[in-house]
C-alpha cells in the first residue's frame, strides 16, 4: 500500500471516497476497495459500522445498520482488510467511533490496524483534549496518525493547535451539519474555505461533508487539497451495486 503522506505531498485534487464495510453485502468490503482503486480514487475512507453513529446522517446510518444486520464486526473487517493487504495499493483511512476501539481493546485495535497496513484514523467522537490526555502516546507507539476535524465554528487558536498535531491531513467539515449530500456549496462555505486557506497551515486540508458530485468536488478542490465523498457514494452503491461503481466515479474524475 502506498503511503498517504507520499500521496498528499505529490498530488493535488485528491478524490477520496467513504464507504461502509460489509455493505451492501457482508463480503463486499474488498470488492468495493478494488473497484474504487481501479477507478482511480486516490485514497479510501473505510467506515466501521456502528450502532449509534452520532456524526453520521441517515444514509450512512442506514448502511451501517444494514452492514451490522449482515453480520459485520471488527474481526471480520480486519480479516477482509488483511486479505487485500498485498494487492491493494490505494491508501486506506479507517473511520470508526471511539467505543469500538475501547471495547475491542485499544492496544489490540491499534495493532490490528497497523497489521492491515493502515496508519491513519478518523474518530469523530475523539475530542482534542482526550487525544492529548489519553491517545496521543498510544497512537505514537503504533505509528498511527489521528485526523482532526475542523468546522466553520472552530476558533483560529484551535485550528492552529490541530495543525500542530496533524501528521496526515486536516478534515475540513464543509458545513455545520452531519454527513449527507446537500447539492451545492454556498457563498458562506466558500468564504470559510478561503479563510482556512489564508491561514497557511502546514497541513494539507481535505474537504468533506456535502461533497456529492463533479461540481461540488471541483469547487472543493479549488480551495483545498482534495475532497471526500461519502453519502452520495453510499446512495449510489445501495441502488446500483458494486458492479456499477465506475458509473459514479468516472463523471467526477472526468
Amino acid at each position: 500500500m502506498k503511503k498517504l503522506n507520499t500521496l498528499l505531498a505529490q498530488k493535488e485534487n485528491l478524490l477520496s471516497i467513504y464507504f461502509t464495510c460489509g455493505y451492501p453485502e457482508l463480503a463486499d468490503t474488498t470488492a468495493v476497495i478494488s473497484a474504487l482503486e481501479k477507478n482511480g480514487v486516490d485514497f479510501i475512507e473505510v467506515g466501521l459500522p456502528y450502532s449509534d453513529p452520532l456524526a453520521d446522517g441517515p444514509t450512512i446510518q442506514d448502511s451501517s445498520q444494514k452492514a451490522l444486520e449482515n453480520g459485520i464486526n471488527l474481526d471480520i473487517v480486519f480479516s477482509q482488510l488483511m486479505s487485500i493487504k498485498q494487492s491493494n495499493q490505494t491508501p486506506l483511512v479507517l473511520m470508526g467511533y471511539l467505543n469500538q476501539m475501547l471495547k475491542y481493546g485499544e492496544e489490540k485495535f491499534c495493532q490490528q490496524v497497523v497489521d492491515c497496513g493502515i496508519e491513519t484514523l478518523i474518530i469523530p467522537d475523539l475530542p482534542m483534549v482526550e487525544f492529548e490526555n489519553h491517545y496521543q502516546a498510544l497512537f505514537d507507539k503504533y505509528g498511527l496518525t489521528n485526523v482532526f476535524l475542523i468546522t466553520p465554528n472552530t476558533s483560529e487558536e484551535r485550528i492552529r493547535k490541530i495543525d500542530s498535531y496533524t501528521k496526515a491531513f486536516i478534515y475540513v467539515v464543509a458545513s455545520s451539519s452531519i454527513t449527507g449530500a446537500k447539492g451545492e456549496i454556498s457563498k458562506e462555505q466558500i468564504d470559510y474555505f478561503i479563510r482556512i486557506k489564508a491561514m497557511q497551515l502546514k497541513s494539507k486540508c481535505i474537504i468533506g461533508f456535502g461533497i456529492s458530485d463533479k461540481p461540488t468536488f471541483t469547487t472543493a478542490c479549488a480551495h483545498a487539497h482534495g475532497a471526500i465523498i461519502g453519502s452520495a457514494f453510499i446512495k449510489h452503491l445501495g441502488s446500483h451495486g458494486v458492479e456499477n461503481i465506475a458509473a459514479f466515479i468516472a463523471p467526477i474524475k472526468a
Partner: peptide, 20 residues
C-alpha cells in the same frame, strides 16, 4: 461494561464489539 454513549464515558450495555 465501560463504554461511551451520548458523549460520556460510563457503564454501558454493549456487545463484544462495542455495539450498543
Amino acid at each position: 461494561e465501560v463504554g461511551i454513549i451520548h458523549g460520556s464515558k460510563t457503564i454501558l450495555m454493549q456487545d463484544a464489539y462495542g455495539q450498543i
